[in-house]
Design a protein around this nucleic acid. Structure first.
Lengths: 175, 175
DNA sequence: GTCTATACTTCGATAGAC
DNA sequence: GTCTATCGAAGTATAGAC
């Protein structure tokens, strides 16, 4: 969908996510979100009656994106492991942004965000274990993906991290 | 050092870290920190003239703890890889708390916190690579540690994660 | 559906008594 | 070294015009 056609509601969630990812929860205020989306604060609060509802709306959208991602992973050309690893480093996609944003919210003790992230991870893990037929290997690969993701979101990522991982996973016959 | 003898300054940093870890940056206000440390806000601001100085003090202490941790890792009885992995899951130690707290601050776009964490990671990586003589394996193990740490701090940790990792690393001859 | 104006609360920080 | 009192700015949310 072209950006110009996005509903105000969607643009508000976009703005909320963008602020969460780039500056953290303390900077993602209603004022800032409204400004980022070029809407007044009153306009924002028409669509979401509270900040809590804004979080809720974001998580609903994340779950939809998550279902689509697991489907893509299952049928990926190079296989699920490769797909999972390459998408664990932030590619700047809308889904990445939503995922990182939810992570920030989860760290503020929000059980809804934690639950959404846990469900997503379970979906990925199921595909990995089915494909590999090896629980330990599947869990370890998921941890590597979490590490890639964590490093990316904390500004700690190494340039060649993925190359090194592929090297090791090839030795294990997982790639 | 017994808890009763800890200086007010140290207790304030303790309280700040505790709040960051348990409830996130939005909840770690000066009011809340002072209350957690059983000090008035004025008392807090005598020791740290601003919230920024409180962050600074926390990071100084983290770097000291980090140096001690790398030393312990280097001389660990079961070897640095085992030490690194077992200490990547939150054991509830003061160092773990400081590490997680710094991670929260880093996500609010604080370059000092990011730099401190990056330096710590570099220290661990150096020991891993020296011990293993294999950069790809060292990087991969570091990512697994990051994954364990991330899962722990987001409430996503699996009970048997470490067991699965040990299994896979044994196949690779790293343990 | 979006805006302005405003009420109420909380945050970070200062001033000054003890 | 610690406390109370207070200020200005920023936060969430409501009311009502357009």
């Amino acid at each position: 969908m072209p950006a110009a056609e996005r509903s105000t509601r969607d643009r508000l969630i976009d703005a909320f996510e963008t602020l969460l990812v780039s500056a953290g929860t303390r900077s993602a205020t209603l004022d800032a979100v409204a400004a980022e989306a070029n809407v007044s604060k009153g306009g924002l609060l028409y669509h979401f009656h509270s900040k809590d509802e804004l979080v809720e709306g974001m998580l609903v959208r994340l779950r939809e994106q998550g279902r689509a991602d697991v489907d893509k992973m299952r049928t990926a050309k190079k296989g699920p492991v490769d797909f999972y690893l390459t998408t664990s480093v932030n590619t700047g996609s809308a889904f990445d942004r939503a995922l990182i944003a939810a992570g920030r919210i989860a760290q503020e003790n929000d059980s809804r965000a934690s639950a959404a992230l846990a469900d997503l991870r379970e979906g990925w893990f199921t595909v990995l274990r089915e494909h590999l037929g090896d629980e330990s290997l599947a869990r370890t690969i998921q941890l590597i993906g979490d590490g890639l993701y964590f490093d990316d979101t904390t500004g700690l990522s190494e340039k060649n991290a993925l190359k090194h991982v592929r090297d090791v996973l090839t030795r294990l016959g997982a790639l």
